[in-house]
Amino acid sequence: MNKLLCATNMKALFKFSTIAVLLIVLIVLVLFFAIGNSVYSGKTASLKFVNASGQLIKSASITVAGQSCSVKELGPGGEIRCHFEDLYDSSYSVSVKMQSGVLHSEPSLGYVTGGMNFNDTITINQSGVIELVSSPCT
């Protein structure tokens, strides 16, 4: 009888300890993902796009992390500002159509991530080269 009682107690203790361990693992995972989300959410990119081409831009589009910013016309020396939120690992995709009809594009320019904020400047120069100056900040 003692052996049966002891075996029953051991089974109950095993079930309890298994449930306790699983609950602790679950709590740790929830905390891990909550901390990760708070670190990576709310990070932004502030972007300035500058027309240094000397020509009228008919249209320009900038996309990063699934978000877009565009302008219909931008005169020589003109600039626009864009703001992107909730970043994830991505790069800028830039497409610029000049008044002459020439299309300049850069499908993968620079790098942004959800781990920090960015203050970036994208410039199209007179030869049509699209350049990025990136300034990550925390």
Rank of each mutant, 00 (worst) to 15 (best):
N117W: 08
L109Q: 09
S41W: 04
V112T: 11
P136N: 08
Q126H: 10
G36K: 01
S134D: 09
Y111N: 11
T138D: 15
S61R: 13
L103A: 05
D86I: 00
S17C: 06
D120C: 04
R81H: 09
S59C: 03
D120T: 09
I35R: 12
T123R: 04
S46W: 00
L103S: 05
A45Y: 05
L26N: 04
V71E: 14
A34L: 09
K3R: 07
S95A: 14
S68E: 15
G115A: 13
V39T: 08
I62N: 02
V102S: 10
H104S: 10
V39F: 10
S93F: 06
M116K: 15
S70A: 15
I80D: 05
P136Q: 07
A60I: 00
L22F: 14
I124V: 11
A60D: 05
Y88D: 12
V30D: 11
V64I: 13
Y111L: 09
T121P: 05
F32Q: 08
L87T: 09
E73R: 12
S100K: 13
T138K: 08
T63V: 14
S17V: 04
E85Y: 14
L31I: 02
I130P: 08
K15G: 01
G36I: 01
V64D: 05
M1I: 02
M1K: 03
V21N: 01
A7R: 10
K72Q: 11
I124E: 06
C82T: 08
I57N: 03
I19S: 03
I80P: 01
A7K: 11
G101P: 07
S59W: 01
L23P: 00
P76K: 15
K58I: 00
F32V: 03
S53H: 04
I57Y: 05
A52Q: 11
T8Y: 03
K11H: 04
Y40E: 15
V112K: 10
T18G: 01
Q67N: 11
F33Q: 07
G66S: 12
E106Y: 02
T113V: 05
L109I: 11
K3D: 14
F32M: 06
I122V: 09
S70W: 04
L31R: 02
N51T: 06
L5N: 12
S91I: 03
L5C: 00
D86A: 15
T18A: 13
T8H: 01
L109M: 11
P76T: 04
S59H: 13
T113I: 00
V112W: 10
S95G: 05
I24V: 14
F32E: 00
F118D: 02
C82W: 04
K58V: 02
K43F: 00
V96M: 11
S17G: 00
V28D: 08
G115I: 07
Y92V: 10
E73W: 07
C6L: 08
